[in-house]
């Protein structure tokens, strides 16, 4: 099988990029998409050209490293699949494919199809956790968890952080990613103590990273390789709204200040 590839080539974060055309022959239908790019890269190296850079690691669809646009669809035509598990049997002889990196202000392109997704780490750092230090945990079965809630939490927790949702969203919104973590922890009883704070700080971070707003197109859900649902975004909206209206200042001991005499130095 022969394919015509139009690939975004960009040397570094600062330099401008452009689409370049390549032809790959000897494509086997059992190859994964990334193996097809490996073949292209071997040919490029043989010709003393710079191979195409793309993030990848586990190649079994769970690490979330890989991902780019294939003909304008994040992770390509097969639903529920990352590009590393997309096989060439889904393409036709002589087909032209356009490969572009995720596009978002918050995901600057580092090289070719490789982008910087560290904004996702910072969203998690802003509150996507339960504050327990190692060692102090109570007995695991001390707190029963409704099986259905645990299943819903698991549905949301399956997110692999690949960034396809942002790439596919016409607004480059990270609502699906952020809401998946907020949902996961909001479903678990262990997540209750920080529930409000988490919604406030994660949404704030998401915004500070210059991701767009969710306008309910649903593109994210359609390309998500793990089937994370839009319902999570609704839950995030609910969590955030409740938290924002019920919010109090978190200054420890502020109530006591009033007891001090006015002339206190």
């Amino acid at each position: 099988m022969k394919l015509i590839l139009h690939i975004w080539r960009q040397k570094s974060r600062e330099s401008p990029g452009k689409m370049a055309r390549y032809e790959v022959s000897n494509v086997n239908e059992h190859m994964s998409f990334l193996e097809m790019l490996d073949v292209l890269n071997e040919e490029l190296i043989a010709r003393n050209e710079d191979p195409v850079a793309f993030d990848h690691d586990c190649r079994e669809g769970i690490c979330g490293s890989c991902g780019f646009m294939i003909n304008g669809v994040a992770h390509g035509p097969q639903r529920g699949t990352t590009v590393c598990q997309l096989h060439m049997r889904h393409f036709k002889e002589g087909q032209a494919l356009w490969l572009e990196p995720w596009r978002a202000k918050a995901f600057p392109v580092l090289k070719d199809l490789m982008v910087d997704r560290s904004a996702f780490d910072r969203i998690i750092a802003a509150g996507g956790y339960i504050s327990v230090n190692t060692g102090g945990a109570p007995e695991a079965n001390a707190l029963p968890v409704d099986k259905q809630k645990a299943d819903l939490a698991m549905d949301a927790a399956q997110c692999i952080g690949c960034g396809a949702c942002v790439a596919a969203c016409p607004n480059a919104s990270a609502a699906l990613f952020t809401s998946a973590k907020i949902s996961h922890l909001a479903h678990m009883p262990q997540g209750q103590p920080e529930r409000r704070r988490r919604a406030l700080s994660m949404v704030a971070r998401m915004q500070a990273e210059l991701f767009g707003a969710c306008t309910n197109h649903g593109e994210c859900e359609a390309v998500c390789p793990k089937g994370i649902e839009l319902e999570n975004i609704a839950r995030m909206n609910r969590e955030f709204t409740k938290a924002a209206w019920a919010r109090r200042d978190e200054v420890a001991g502020s109530g006591r200040r009033r007891l001090l005499p006015r002339s206190f130095p």
Binding site: M19, K105, N171, L210, T215, N216, G218
Partner: peptide, 23 residues
């Protein structure tokens, strides 16, 4: 925010698959 700040570079090729014309 969405059109001028969050997505500053568009795609050469973009294929919507779930959103409606209305949205």
């Amino acid at each position: 925010l969405n059109k001028l700040e969050a997505r500053t570079t568009g795609y050469v090729k973009y294929t919507p698959i779930a959103s409606s014309y209305a949205s």
